[in-house]
Amino acid sequence: MNDIVSFGYRDVDASEKAGMVRGVFSNVASSYDLMNDAMSGGAHRLWKDQFVRRVKPQPGEAILDMAGGTGDIAFRMHARGANVTVSDINPEMLAVGMERAQKKGLTGLAWSEQNAEALTFADRSFDAYTIAFGIRNVTHIQQALEEAHRVLKFGGRFFCLEFSATLWPGFSDIYDAYSHKVVPKLGKLLAKDEDSYRYLIESIRRFPDMPKFEGMIRKAGFVSTKVEPILGGLVAIHSGWKA
Rank of each mutant, 00 (worst) to 15 (best):
I230K: 02
K188G: 14
I217R: 01
I201A: 12
R218N: 06
R205V: 13
K226D: 14
Y199C: 02
V223Y: 10
V183S: 09
V227I: 10
R198I: 11
K219A: 11
M210Y: 02
P208K: 07
K212I: 14
P184V: 03
M210I: 13
I217N: 02
I204C: 04
V183L: 06
I204F: 06
L234H: 05
L189R: 13
G221H: 04
V227R: 00
K219N: 08
K192C: 14
P229G: 09
I204N: 03
K219M: 03
K188D: 13
G232A: 07
F207Y: 05
F207M: 05
P229S: 02
K192V: 12
S224I: 01
F213R: 03
R198D: 13
D209G: 10
S203N: 08
D209W: 09
Y199E: 05
A191Y: 05
G215D: 04
G233D: 09
I230A: 04
L234P: 00
P229M: 05
E228A: 08
L190K: 00
Y197L: 09
I217S: 06
G232W: 11
D209Q: 13
K192L: 14
G221P: 04
Y199S: 00
Y199F: 11
E228M: 10
E202V: 09
L200N: 01
A191Q: 00
E228C: 06
I230R: 05
R205C: 13
S203R: 10
G215M: 00
L200H: 01
V223G: 07
F213C: 08
P229T: 04
S196G: 15
K219F: 08
S224R: 12
I201N: 04
Y197D: 12
G232F: 09
G215I: 06
A191M: 03
V227Y: 08
K188R: 14
M216E: 06
P184H: 07
R206S: 14
L189A: 15
L200G: 04
L234Y: 13
K219T: 12
L234F: 15
G187D: 07
I204S: 08
P211F: 03
K192A: 14
K219Q: 12
R205H: 15
S196H: 11
V223H: 02
L200D: 07
L200R: 07
D209M: 05
E194W: 12
E214F: 00
A191H: 07
G221E: 07
A220R: 01
I217A: 01
I201P: 01
R206P: 02
F213I: 04
P184K: 10
E228W: 05
A220M: 00
M216F: 05
P211S: 10
